[in-house]
Design a protein around this nucleic acid. Structure first.
Lengths: 179, 179
DNA sequence: CTCAGATGAGACAGAAACGTCTCACCTGAG
DNA sequence: CTCAGGTGAGACGTTTCTGTCTCATCTGAG
C-alpha cells in the first residue's frame, strides 16, 4: 500500500521539475495509477492543496526544530537550513508553482513563515552578526532560492543529499570567497 | 505595434511566475491578443523555442560582456552577475520550466554556458580566491538560483532593479555574515 | 486623406486532459 | 483459506485549451 505522504513527496519532486505535468504523469511518477491518485486527492486542486499544506507544515516543523530565537543568529540559520532539508522538495515545488496556486489561507501561512525567517536575519543584523547592506527580505528570499536550488541539485544527482546543509549554509553565511 | 522582443520579455516574466499559464494568459500579459501571439509564434512550442533561444543568446552576450577569463575570478564573477541582469527574467523562466522544454539543441547550448560558469569558479579556486569546499557545479547552480531569485524579487516589487547586482554579488561572494 | 499591414474578437473543430466510475484482480490481516 | 479494502486499467462524458481562421477595425506612413 502506497502511503499518502509517499505519494505527496514523489508528486512534489516530480512537479518541482515538471510544473506542467499531467495527473497521469504525476500518478506514474508516484508509482500509482491515476484512479488511485484521484482516490487520495480528488483532482488537481485537492492535490495542490495537500502539497501546500504539507509544505507549510514541514516548514513550520523546521522553524520549531531550528528555534530561531535561540542563541546566535548564525547558529540559528544553520539549524534552519538543516531542518529545512526535508521540506526542500516542497520548496522547490512551491518555487516553481509560485502564484500558480492561490487560495487565501496558505498565503497567509507562508507570509508568517517568511516573516519569521526575515526576523531572524534582522535579529542577526541588530546583533552585529550579519551585514546591513542586504535587506532581510532579500536574505529570506535568497535562503529559499538556495534551498530550492540545492534541492534540485540533489534531485538531479548533481549533488549529494548529505551535502545539502553544508552547501546552503556555507554559501549563505560566508559566500564563495576564500577566507 | 508591439515588438516581438517586448512580447518575449513579457512572456518570460509572466511564465517565470506562472509556468502553467495558458496561451490566452500569456498573450494578455504581453498586451496582445492570442491571435497576435500566434502570428508571432505559431503555437506554444514555437514560443518556448523563441524564449529559449533568446535566453541562450542573452546569456552568451552576458558571458562575452563579462569576459570570464580576464582578471581576478572575483571581479569576473561580479561582471557576470551585472551582465546577467538583462537575462534574469529568462533565467527565472528557464528555472521554472526546467525539464519542461526539452529539444536537443538548446540543452547543448546551456551545457556550454554552464561549463563556462563552472570553469570560472574552478579558476577562482585554483587561484586561491574561492573556497574549495563548495563544488564548482554547486556554485554555478547557486549563481543561477540567486539570479533567478533576485529577478523574481525585482519583478514582485520586493527589491529594486538597481540593487540586483549588489544583492547577488555580495551574497554569492561574501555571504550574509558581517566582516 | 488613402491604404497596406497589423490587430483583436470571436468562432470553430480537434486534441488532450480531466474527473469519475466500474470491474476484475491483488494484498494482507485474521 | 476468506474477505475487506485497495488497486490498476480502461471507459466515458465533460471541460479546457489549442491552433487556426475570418472579418471588422485600427494604425501609421506617405
Amino acid at each position: 500500500m502506497k502511503e499518502r505522504d509517499d505519494i505527496l513527496r514523489a508528486a512534489a519532486e516530480f512537479l518541482g521539475r515538471r510544473p506542467n505535468a499531467t495527473q497521469d504523469e504525476i500518478a506514474r511518477a508516484a508509482g500509482v495509477s491515476r484512479a488511485t491518485l484521484h482516490r487520495h486527492f480528488a483532482g488537481r486542486t485537492a492535490l495542490f492543496a495537500a502539497l501546500e499544506q504539507l509544505a507549510v507544515a514541514q516548514m513550520r516543523q523546521a522553524l520549531a526544530t531550528a528555534r530561531l530565537a535561540d542563541g546566535p543568529a548564525t547558529d540559528a540559520l544553520a539549524r534552519l537550513v538543516a531542518a529545512s532539508q526535508d521540506a526542500s522538495a516542497y520548496l522547490a515545488l512551491m518555487y516553481s508553482q509560485s502564484q500558480e496556486y492561490d487560495p487565501e489561507h496558505p498565503h497567509e501561512a507562508w507570509a508568517e513563515i517568511d516573516a519569521e525567517i526575515a526576523a531572524l536575519f534582522r535579529r542577526g543584523q541588530e546583533a552585529g552578526e550579519f551585514r546591513l547592506d542586504l535587506g532581510p527580505a532579500w536574505l529570506a528570499d535568497a535562503f529559499y532560492s538556495l534551498a530550492a536550488g540545492a534541492a534540485w541539485s540533489v534531485q538531479t544527482g548533481r549533488a549529494a543529499a548529505r551535502d545539502f546543509t553544508h552547501m546552503v549554509t556555507t554559501l549563505l553565511l560566508h559566500g564563495a570567497v576564500r577566507r
